[in-house]
Design a protein around this nucleic acid. Sequence first.
DNA 1: TGCACGATGAAC
DNA 2: TTCATCGTGCAC
Length: 183
Amino acid sequence: MQKLPRSFYDRDTILAARELLGKLLVHHAGGVERIGKIVEVEAYLGEHDLAAHSAKGLTERTKVMFGPPGHAYVYLIYGMHHCMNVVTEREGHASAVLLRAVEPVKNIEGRTCGPGLLCRAMKIDRRLNAHDLLSADFFIAAPDDQEKMAIVKRPRIGVEYAKHWAKRHLRFYLKGNPFISRP
DNA sequence: TGCACGATGAAC
DNA sequence: TTCATCGTGCAC
């Protein structure tokens, strides 16, 4: 298991999103190490992407997306669910990758097939917002034995308001994986 | 200071 | 299809 370097995040968001599939999300909390394999993601490309939170510009909430790559952007949605993103590209370019589903690997209880569910199962909440993913307690790593899997491209979920951006295939998941949030 | 509205999930 | 529930962003 090899922790991903800063350079993994400091590049094209679509490329980073696709390569995050199959990687391991690791969170140490309360003396417990929880690990999930990332199987579904969505790319949010920056201020010009009408589906991205950063389309509203630099605000208190979105400032993490404008920050340096390799940090977590965690927010509360619908007043009750948390969503976890990985900030990508150079500082000032407000892009990120939303983690939509993971496959349980270690110490995972409950379902993980959805952005809110995976945060609940891995004990991720807003306290981890802006957390550096090159830290010791919260990071993403490449497994020692990652097999090459076919990737499916689909439109993103729940962003119908984003005009033509809603049609773009910026959702990626591992073909045939049973933990995908929706087909 | 008030208010409309979600990058969701679960129930009906 | 409906609803729970609250932080954020923007209008007043």
